[in-house]
Nucleic acid binder design. Structure first.
Lengths: 212, 212
DNA sequence: TAGATTGTTAATCGATTAACAATC
DNA sequence: TAGATTGTTAATCGATTAACAATC
């Protein structure tokens, strides 16, 4: 399945969201759900849900919907690396620490931040929120040793491109960039940009238009 | 201009980004730029830049490009509220503090977080990173008094919907949601969802596909 | 059976890009 | 003038939605 045309980032993102919505239902003992129920929870259309699940290669049953457990399993088989995946964090300021509290060492498996990097001497070689912090010069060494494939950039704008260069130079193939500036990477590397300022300015623009 | 069909969120977001890229150039004394230069910096096509600027109602000159100062001014006229715009933050945990350090009281004008809300008694009625923290029960009162139109949700998943209800009940018309769950709001309210977990899982998925 | 839902194609919608005349 | 860039339309592309036969 899903090999004719490669699955889009939007579809993968929705599947990730569906799973997170399904997990509590599974815990509560819900065994089956309809596309329209999942759609309502995710804020998308029922047709969208059915199409995403079709692309995943999972099948439901007319009139009885989808089996929660099986759907979760198929999403995991699509999205997760079987042996988990290691993440590096560059920049342990306010935002970096917030991110560490989400994906720090507490996690049993899946995505885990296993190394942090920061230029400040008082952070280097310390353990912050359960995660060892290294000086950026050691990035290549640590990323190789820990088999890290994903990097998170949480440094100031002026340091973002250097961080990206170091991460990609060390072999990372995916980067989530929180710095308020786009970064340039080799074509092989996947990048997504979480630009808080841009998002907030956009929300403010539409908030104003809908006021009064 | 731009009144026939309302400008899309994607266009507004790019304009916000263009401005942030232009500002340092203006400081450096750059007077004019070409669409392809701005395009390269922003990571979009030159045609996209020209179309966005056209939608903005700004004009350049063939062969000499756009005037930096004038372009910045026209973007500001489109995006910014003339008298600035006030923002409320709900949830002052790790992530909330990181956001406060971006949009806290240090700002002279534009978007400023002027009130924070948190249930924890040790935070209530304290000033955190220059911002007064209130108990959530006072949201309606404070949002009215401070003329707040935008809310940021940075609370745990289980508290997100309540926060959204309180914000919209108090008259906020735009919400930026950092909680790992979609929120439901009245149709008049604009919402954007920054889902760090979904973004990171998506980056990890494509990182894995590009590895090896 | 009657009613409801899935799986999937075709239609629609919106956003991006290509192309090029106008212009400096 | 020759060369390069803007402004803008048409073409393309991709994603979402509508629709409905198949199915339980």
């Amino acid at each position: 399945m899903a090999l004719t045309r490669s699955t889009s980032a939007r579809t993968i993102s929705r599947l990730s969201l569906y799973r997170r919505l399904l997990l509590p239902w599974q815990t509560e003992g819900v065994e089956r759900i309809y596309s329209h129920q999942l759609a309502q929870a995710a804020g998308v259309s029922a047709a969208q849900v059915r199409r995403d699940i079709m692309e995943l290669g999972h099948s439901g049953t007319p009139n009885t919907g989808y089996e929660v457990r099986g759907l979760i399993a198929d999403i995991a088989a699509c999205i997760d690396a079987p042996e988990g995946q290691q993440v590096a964090l560059v920049g342990v300021g306010n935002l970096g620490r917030a991110i560490l509290s989400y994906f720090g060492s507490g996690r049993k498996r899946g995505l885990v931040i296993v190394a942090a990097f920061d230029v400040e001497p008082e952070k280097v070689d310390r353990v912050l929120l359960g995660c060892r912090c290294y000086r950026p010069e050691r990035m290549s060494e640590v990323i190789g040793a820990e088999d890290i494939s994903v990097g998170i950039i949480a440094v100031p704008a002026e340091a973002a491109q250097t961080a990206a260069d170091q991460l990609t130079g060390a072999g990372v193939t995916g980067i989530l960039n929180f710095a308020p500036v786009p970064i340039k990477v080799p074509p092989m590397v996947y990048v997504d940009h979480m630009d808080i300022t841009v998002k907030l300015e956009t929300v403010a623009y539409f908030a104003r238009r809908r006021k009064g």
